[in-house]
Computed example of a mutant assay.
Amino acid sequence: MLQSKTVQDNMKRNNSSRLALSCMLICFTPLSFSSDINPDRPDKLISKAEAENTKCRGGPGNDPYTPVSCYDRERTMSQIQKLGWCWGPRDAYGYQKKWIICSSDRSASVDDSVKSSRLDPSWRPFGSTMFFMSPAASNTPALTASIREGQIHINLIDPNSALCKSGESSGPNEAGPYKINDTYLKFQSFCMNGTRVFGPSSAQGKDFMLKAVEAGSMKVELDTPPPLIFYGTDFDSVRRELMKTESAL
């Protein structure tokens, strides 16, 4: 009986030791499982972006459909980024980049897009109260930004339009609807000294078009293809310049 009790006591001590060791392992092992969970890689979207990139980089510069492929690539890559995947690391050379988890890119938290006080070169002055931007792979219709009573207005201008006779000033008339970034907007059009000027007619449409410009790129689909693609990297510089004209003495 004494020997049996001794064996039982040893078993209890061994069990207590194992329990204490297990507790130590649990308490001191870093619980990193939640941070190691990665979102599923969106391979279909990635394949789509890569195909669009091939058309963008390999297309002729004077082909109006080449910038359409570049625009589509940027839109697809934006969708991929929203799913947690990025083309990076951001500060790596192009040949070093690959699809990575956005949160793993340490350089992504660094603001390397310091805005310059200079005017974005894609926007050019047209008089003192308006700026314009030509579409990629084309000259017209051009995008215009102007200011009236403190409000920024985004329109399109086409001096070559057959809808306006030489020297004609008339309108406004209903036009469109036209697609802006795949969304239909109602437009109004008028002639100013033989040049066609047209833009959104509703407050919601005007706000939508302004936000599209502020986002950095815009696809405009008019009556005939191909779509017009506009790229602007810093609309804030245009806004600042326009605001200066509002405060002129």
Rank of each mutant, 00 (worst) to 15 (best):
S4C: 05
K5F: 14
T6F: 08
T6P: 00
V7W: 07
Q8C: 09
D9N: 08
N14M: 12
N15D: 07
N15F: 03
S16Q: 10
L19V: 08
L21C: 04
L21Y: 01
S34I: 14
D40W: 02
K44F: 04
I46F: 08
K48Q: 15
K55G: 02
C56I: 05
C56A: 10
P60R: 14
G61F: 05
D63N: 15
P64R: 11
P67E: 10
V68G: 07
E74W: 06
M77I: 10
S78L: 10
Q81E: 14
P89E: 02
R90T: 12
R90Y: 03
A92C: 02
A92V: 03
Y93N: 15
W99Y: 13
I101M: 07
C102H: 07
D105M: 09
S107V: 04
S107M: 06
V110K: 13
D111Y: 01
S113D: 13
S116N: 09
S117G: 14
R118Y: 10
L119Q: 11
D120I: 06
W123F: 15
W123H: 03
W123K: 01
R124G: 02
M130P: 00
S134R: 15
P135C: 05
T140Y: 14
T144D: 01
T144P: 00
A145F: 13
R148C: 00
G150W: 09
Q151E: 11
Q151M: 08
I157N: 00
P159K: 03
P172S: 11
E174Q: 12
I180L: 06
Y184K: 09
Y184M: 09
L185A: 00
K186L: 03
Q188G: 07
V197E: 08
F198G: 03
S201N: 06
S202Q: 08
S202D: 15
Q204F: 04
D207Q: 14
F208Y: 15
L210N: 05
L210T: 06
A212L: 02
E214V: 15
G216V: 06
S217M: 14
V220Q: 08
V220D: 08
E221W: 02
I229A: 10
I229G: 10
L242A: 01
E246N: 11
S247M: 12
S247A: 13
A248V: 11
L249T: 10
